[in-house]
Design a protein around this nucleic acid. Sequence first.
DNA 1: GTCTATATGATGATAGAC
DNA 2: GTCTATCATCATATAGAC
Lengths: 228, 228
Amino acid sequence: MDTDERIALAMAELLRKQGYAATGINQLARAAGAPTGSLYHHFKGGKREIAAAALRQTGAAYIQLLPLLLDAHDDLATGIESLFAEAAEDMRDTGWANMCPVGTVTAETADTEPELRKVAAEVMETWVEVGSRYFTARGLSEADSRTVVFAVLSALEGAFILARGMRSAEPFRAAGRTLGTYVASLRDEQPKTPARTRAQTGQRHHAPVPRGESPGPPRARQTPNAAG
Amino acid sequence: MDTDERIALAMAELLRKQGYAATGINQLARAAGAPTGSLYHHFKGGKREIAAAALRQTGAAYIQLLPLLLDAHDDLATGIESLFAEAAEDMRDTGWANMCPVGTVTAETADTEPELRKVAAEVMETWVEVGSRYFTARGLSEADSRTVVFAVLSALEGAFILARGMRSAEPFRAAGRTLGTYVASLRDEQPKTPARTRAQTGQRHHAPVPRGESPGPPRARQTPNAAG
DNA sequence: GTCTATATGATGATAGAC
DNA sequence: GTCTATCATCATATAGAC
């Protein structure tokens, strides 16, 4: 791992726990094992540019977890529930540390740091695109895929916060159950919602899962510590 | 409104937009229209204590919105969808300002400010208790009520962040749809989930709505600007 | 209670030796 | 490229006049 990555990784770790404003350059230098001046050599833009790199880095790492965790389940609904369960477990194991610096930094700096907000928006849009493609490949319609991605991301970010504050896994359980139920309702073609008409009746709902390779059980560590 | 409240309110407004670390005492003094020394006269604990008061104040104001927005709908499922729609509308109207300082501050300070985390946890637990009672009064079982409250709160906090970053109402639409569907599935007593057995079959599902008074259309401003 | 002035320390950023 | 020393500015908190 080269120095740039090491600095960005240390920044991501601090952003996750303290946010942007509370994270000092000197503290970052200590955490990254590099003197202050070195940071500015690698990132001319200083603190802001390092934070942007950290958001991009962790954003790219996070979206890889989606297929990694969902491919293991033939049923998408139980897969979603399991995803939230794993997130909860990992968060408890790490002492309820917030797992997503993107969420923390966005909430904190969207009005005061336009450049960081823009980077966060790009990361989120990538999440939506990649996730949407995945769910479409798993048999959902494009509109449903987009809805599910947005709902899953929102519920995850919110559950991070609730769980972080309350030190409880209950937000994850609740979010996983409701979203699992929603995905199951798409599969079962409820007649109770006549508003939702599906054009293509021949649509495959249990399309063959497009596994990359996924040999054994793809038990992935929830918090990515290395950049993809 | 007395001085204490005015100070706490100004703090809440700043926390919502900038978070805790980025909000300075002098900036707060300017916003509250009081000199620095006055803040310490009213709050001996300084910045931290003011922030705690702000979280409690807005937390109490927010939970009042739940019945205010849901009582207007006889059908709980459409009520939930409408709640998210209103939140989205109001957030867009305020220029995608984050609407919940509790979420922002929790994400930012849970690991570095134990006192603030504790206050945030208390606020969240109140939300869960009050919200749970409300949904039970609307006919849900106690377990279902708790699940719905946690899911709604998580989805709201997460949608705030996503919407704030992407400047889009789509997270709210997606969250509202999925949660509306979930609540509807509870009402319809799906046989597809045999695991969920309901003990009391005589349970009222459309219990008479316990309106406080709610005279006309309770169109409430989403962002509470005055303490309850 | 209100307000001014200030003490003490930390901040982001930079210059320049090696 | 690495590291040290330092600058100007900001922070929170307080003392004390009114």
